[in-house]
């Protein structure tokens, strides 16, 4: 039995063995999550060189996991979606949005439909959507859930479950496209950037699935840093992190996100996202 006890002790002790003064970040890109460690390891190397401190990347699987890691100080910097950033900053007072992708200043979502529905592209969402089957992306996604749901409620004055005969959560933008293309769901909402990139890669059959409506623009992904990093890593550390992110120009590194560059951002930029989340009941007061 004693070996078991030792092993148990070992397992429970492991968290405390971690090095204390490593700056850790996490990121989930909105498409292509393959080889995360390798791709974002390079981003870590870049930050490490700029900040003159050991920087590590840890991969996470969901926005919720990223928020938890951020809240528990397992990571100090995270590449969040619009909604997950708002949630994280609410849980960690003092934390700050540092930079967003250039594209994230005017992000948008597409509503897409299978050709068999006969729904034509239009200026608004049509009544023809009623009674169809519909899928969001992942539950915590800004572009795949929050904003589409907001505009559905705004235009129909009803919850998605009342508009559609069935509402699913595909879990991922690529999967939303695949499912609507296969007719498994008739309509879906998807991140515009993922759609454009899959279109370019020839993964989308225009005879089967098409965009029927584009949402107005909204702010999305951003880098958020904990408020206590200056105290932990030295005065002015936060400013240096922002500097390093804004100066990131290497196309290979930017392709991991994928964004063309990073531009400054502030917490207030995400006020509309927070209001929306509250309006559709994803945030409590």
């Amino acid at each position: 039995m004693s070996i078991f006890r030792r092993l148990l002790a070992l397992a429970l002790l492991l968290p405390t063995l971690a090095q204390a003064e490593t700056f850790v970040f996490t990121a989930i890109p909105d498409e292509d999550e393959s080889r995360l460690q390798e791709r974002f390891g390079k981003v870590a190397d870049y930050l490490s060189a700029q900040l003159d401190i050991e920087v590590q990347y840890i991969p996470v699987k969901s926005y919720a996991a990223a928020i938890t890691a951020f809240r528990n100080n397992q990571v100090q910097l995270a590449w969040f979606g619009g909604l997950s950033g708002v949630q994280a900053r609410r849980l960690v007072p003092g934390s700050e949005a540092l930079a967003q992708g250039y594209e994230d200043q005017f992000f948008k979502s597409y509503f897409i439909a299978h050709a068999s529905t006969g729904i034509e592209p239009g200026e608004t969402l049509t009544d023809a959507l009623r009674g169809k089957t519909f899928t969001f992306g992942s539950k915590g996604s800004t572009s795949g859930r929050l904003m589409p749901e907001f505009y559905l409620r705004e235009q129909f004055g009803a919850a998605p479950e009342e508009i559609f005969s069935r509402v699913g959560f595909s879990g991922d933008h690529s999967r939303t496209i695949a499912q609507v293309q296969a007719g498994a769901y008739q309509v879906g909402a998807v991140n515009f950037a993922v759609w454009e990139s899959e279109l370019e890669q020839g993964k989308i059959d225009a005879d089967k699935v098409r965009v029927i409506w584009t949402t107005p623009t909204y702010p999305d992904y951003q880098w958020t840093v904990r408020g206590d990093v200056d105290a932990r890593f030295g005065e002015g550390f936060k400013a240096r992190v922002r500097e390093a992110l804004l100066n990131l120009k290497d196309p290979e590194l930017l392709a991991s996100f994928p964004r063309q560059s990073f531009v400054p951002a502030a917490n207030d930029d995400y006020g509309p996202i927070e209001d929306t989340a509250r309006a559709i009941g994803l945030l409590d007061d």
């Binding site: 092993l7 070992l10 397992a11 492991l14 968290p15 405390t16 063995l17 971690a18 090095q19 204390a20 490593t22 850790v24 590590q56 840890i58 528990n72 100080n73 397992q74 990571v75 100090q76």
Partner: peptide, 15 residues
């Protein structure tokens, strides 16, 4: 035990 992934950046603080 040797293969267990290294825990990065986590310090247990009364969570």
């Amino acid at each position: 035990v040797w293969l267990l992934p290294e825990t990065v950046g986590f310090s247990n603080g009364g969570y």
